[in-house]
Design a protein around this nucleic acid. Sequence first.
DNA 1: GCCGTTTTCGGCCCGACTGTTTTCAGTCG
Length: 584
Amino acid sequence: MTESNKKLAAIFKNIAASYRFLGGENPFRAIAYDKASRSIASLPEDISVYISNGTTEDIPGVGESMAEDIQEFAAKGTVPRFERLKSKVPIDLLELMDISGFGPQSLKTIYTKLHLQTKDEIVDALKDGTIARLYGFGAKKVETMMRGLKLHKTIENRMLLWEALEVGNKIVTAFEKLPFVQKAALAGSLRRGRETIGDIDVLVAVLDKDRKKVADHFTKQDVAARILVKGDTKVSILLKDLKRQADLRIVTPDEWGSALQYFTGSKEHNIHLRTKARDMGFKVSEYGVFEIQSGRRVGGATEKEVYNLLGMQLMPAEMREDKGEIGLAAMHRIPKLVELSDIKGDLQMHSTWSDGIKTLEEIASYVIQNFPYDYIAMTDHSKASRIAKGMDEEGFLRQIKAIRELNSKLGKNFIKSGAEVDVLADGSLDLSEEVLSQLDWVTASIHSGLRSNNTDRLIKACESPWVHCIGHPTGRLIGRREPYPVDFKRLLEAAKETGTALEVNAQPNRMDLNDELARQAREAGVMLVISTDSHSPENFSYMKIGVTVARRAWCTADNILNTRSWNEIEKFIRNKQKTMKVHA
DNA sequence: GCCGTTTTCGGCCCGACTGTTTTCAGTCG
Ligand SMILES: Nc1nc2c(ncn2[C@H]2C[C@H](O)[C@@H](COP(=O)(O)OP(=O)(O)OP(=O)(O)O)O2)c(=O)[nH]1
Ligand SMILES: [Mg+2]
Ligand SMILES: [Mg+2]
Ligand SMILES: [Zn+2]
């Protein structure tokens, strides 16, 4: 998200919070600003682009009056509407609405009855019992609020998809072992495959009589630290080590489809779907699809049934972000997304020749045993990456020879010799043309100058005939390092023109390109490569979440180079060399 | 405040759980 978009989304969110706080006649105005805030936060372009194109009102949820807000924001950096609201609401309290247990009504009561203006004052009043004595409050409410405050810091930092999958899969597997559990599955952002995850959402189907048993299993697992809520259909716990929430929904088998649809989300997708259903005379909830007229339940056993009843195709969970998939489904034009089983090889990994922990032999035998791949590319670091023990030209020449020997022992050309060559400060490459031209597969990556605008460096790398792919193109590390500034439009043009692929790096904290940029690459007709950048054997499994990123970008197998045979990849390479007028 | 192959006005997704509310508001998914 760009800085301006971040700022504007935050202001809109605060406007929404202010309207909620003020309460009064129309709660929908707050909802509208909240929706617009989320809409702006997920915009593919900087807000300035919409302003100069005069397309701000095309942003979903933005109308005439918000377009004016945005104009003012562009001119002055502030929104007058919010400046005016600041005199009516205690702005320091608005951010507290993100904390579990702190709703607009609670904060308003605390503010009007006790005249508290800051978080610290509220904390003191929670501790000394002042708030507990307020009308409508009590010991339990204060306890929830205190817990919310304590957990808020960890909750703000979302989990990585991979970490969350490991925890979630364990919980699901444990459920599947229980004889009375008919079905169990991950739901929420975990099933949609977002790169970061807020909580673990799990759905189970049991017979009505087994509800309590399954709820008890959930709250008594050894990973459960405490129970947050517990009812017949819904249980939430706090997980021990992670200090995060896990939500369980319990339904009967005939409700499975509608419940999974609901619990998978996203929230925006659900609201859009339910609104459309209503227009068609149906009501959709987690319990099924109902005819509004008769109240009759017409389906909900499977997700497919839910969507089909509304005249839509079933779509993959990864697409359900309300980014146009509902329209596509209604037109029966949902693409066939790339799958893990389409992947024919892995094109970035490191061995003991640089900073990997396994030898060439160990890697080859591990991959051959565990993956149905036709090829892998060994892409050790080049010398500029000193911390990663990068090799010089001579090292690569020796490795080429070692790989040739190993392949002949394997009886097939399984390992391709390659490099993850550093792009130097001036955009030149860290290895000589003589060596680069002997490598089967070259990925060029930036590992230095991570704050500067790197557009020109990357474009220059694309223009080298020996570079086949740009590695982790934005350099971001989730939660640790922002992407370096890149004019992505220009990079896409260069990649397209030169026939260079862009990587979707599947390391859990990279996921680089991310879903949105991968989508832009696909739309621009730029080829993508999904690779694990493995440094150890377990890393090869990251391919799954790399594919998830591509699916969230609505990619088909055609968009991903390493769904193709090596012969076809060689065609891709020759094609680039033809374009760049090099004759091998 | 936004929005429309039914609408330019009148709706806005739909439901579960908790607490002190004595009949349901507030908060959350
Ligand atoms: N219809 C409807 N469904 C909702 C609403 N809020 C949440 N859901 C559904 C869709 C969500 O994906 C699912 C799980 O809720 P979460 O709060 O855990 O959100 P989600 O997992 O999407 O994101 P997260 O990573 O947890 O922040 O419940 C809502 O207001 N209306
Ligand atoms: Mg969730
Ligand atoms: Mg949840
Ligand atoms: Zn490395």
